[in-house]
Computed example of a mutant assay.
Amino acid sequence: MDRLTKEQRHKNMAAIHSKDTKPEILVRKFLFSRGFRYRLNHPLLPGKPDIVLRKYKTCIFINGCFWHGHDGCKYFVMPKTRIDFWQAKIERNKERDSENQRKLASMGWHCITIWECQLKPKVREATLESLSYTLSLIFLKNHKVKKYELHEKDSLIAAEPLDI
């Protein structure tokens, strides 16, 4: 049985927004501080990704563990009331997420999903550093930047580029 009245529950659920959530803002502030520039909720891309980095041809989805059914996560607990409704709703969300990511991949876009639980204080720094590292690798792969290797006796002028 729900501890809240029907009106209280309605008010709580209505206060939940799909844009500008705290996890989204955390990721956006991190990316901006590291020099990454992005667009928000690009309307022409499937699923209107939360963050779009055109230079990296990458879309970032920041998913709430409950709303997107994060399997195996302690923050995803199926409600005890209206079970059929919630199971169907969460399953539809998961199917829609998969379909949008398939469409984006077929268009040549990289998709990164960050879960709400990955932005909790204990693991936040590791998650964000991993995101930065992944974006750097995508950039290097997409732009075929030459990497130089120096030998002990070589000078910078004599260094030879290596293909990555």
Rank of each mutant, 00 (worst) to 15 (best):
L44T: 13
W86S: 01
P49I: 01
S106K: 14
E24M: 03
F61L: 10
H42C: 09
E99A: 14
C59E: 03
P121N: 02
P23E: 05
E129G: 04
S98D: 12
S106Y: 11
D20A: 09
R34G: 00
R92W: 09
Y75M: 13
K19C: 08
E116F: 01
G35L: 08
K29W: 06
M107P: 03
T81C: 06
W109S: 06
R39W: 11
P43L: 01
S106N: 15
I16Y: 01
A15K: 12
V52K: 03
I51L: 07
S106D: 15
C59V: 10
G72L: 07
E116Y: 00
I90A: 07
D84C: 05
Y75W: 13
R82E: 14
E129D: 10
H17R: 15
I90M: 06
N12Q: 11
Q101M: 14
K55I: 06
W115N: 06
G69P: 03
G72C: 06
N41H: 15
P23M: 04
T5Y: 03
R82Y: 14
M78V: 10
N93H: 08
Q101E: 14
N41M: 06
L45C: 05
L26D: 11
I25V: 14
R102M: 11
N63H: 15
W115F: 00
L131H: 07
E125N: 14
W109I: 02
L53G: 09
F36Q: 04
R124L: 12
R28W: 10
Q101I: 07
E116W: 00
L53P: 09
I16G: 03
K55N: 13
G64H: 08
F66I: 08
I114P: 00
C65E: 07
K57Y: 01
I90Y: 05
E95Y: 11
R82Q: 15
Q87L: 13
K22S: 11
K94E: 04
T81W: 08
S132F: 14
L131A: 05
L104K: 06
V27W: 09
E95R: 14
H68T: 07
P23F: 06
F61A: 09
S106T: 12
R34N: 12
